[in-house]
Design a protein around this nucleic acid. Structure first.
Lengths: 112, 112
DNA sequence: CGTGTAAGGAATTCTGACACG
DNA sequence: CGTGTAAGGAATTCTGACACG
């Protein structure tokens, strides 16, 4: 019923050069964070990496953590926790939507 | 008051190869439509073109028009009209917001 | 551990031009 | 008018490795 028709934020279309420009990180750093499983760019047929805006946001977060001296291993753990929280939030949202729909199931005939 | 903090849709970050993949158009066609002032990619320092998701949407529209046999010159005119309409719509929106704000100026103390 | 760098190769993109129609 | 293509050059990206610490 509810579609994400244009999730530009997650489309993997940006090359590493632009990502470097946008984040201020070196190619070496960007590739290394991939090696450490912090980001997951896609590849085109020829093997060049493609990143999304989400990846760029993640990289900025990573850069901040690194400046604080946090190791990639720790950052990885923290990001896993974030993902779990996010899943929980969605579960909660679904439950609320369920209640909401139940409540209005029988008297939703006028407003579109 | 209302900010577009992350207008990913208009960020010029995509190279012509990806645009070609996404639209199905050839490099030649994409560059030609720029020459005819239908799209306006940016350039990085070294001169390579960078497109936005908006540009890609425009290109798809252009491709559809071209298939119908519409010439680039006509397409250009049509797109100018679209822009004008869009401006008018915003003017209307601003007027409505003005009235809305005036109406609630004195009794907006509870709900955020 | 995290990052820099030189190395060699492969893929990308650019421009201006000739071609066809 | 709109698009294809071959041409030559410049810029981009890739991998694996050595280096420092």
């Amino acid at each position: 019923m509810s579609f994400e028709s244009t999730p530009y934020k997650d489309k993997k279309v940006i090359s590493i050069g632009i990502v470097s420009e946008l984040t201020g990180l070196s190619f070496r750093q960007i590739r290394y964070y991939e090696e450490r499983k912090l980001i997951f760019p896609e590849r085109n047929e020829k093997g060049t990496r493609r990143y999304s805006f989400s990846d760029i946001e993640k990289l900025v977060e990573i850069a901040n953590k690194r400046e604080e001296g946090v190791q990639t291993h720790e950052i990885r753990k923290e990001m896993k926790q974030e993902r779990t929280k996010s899943v929980e939030k969605n579960v909660l949202k679904d439950m609320l939507r369920g209640q909401f729909n139940a409540h209005f199931r029988n008297n939703n005939n006028n407003s579109m």
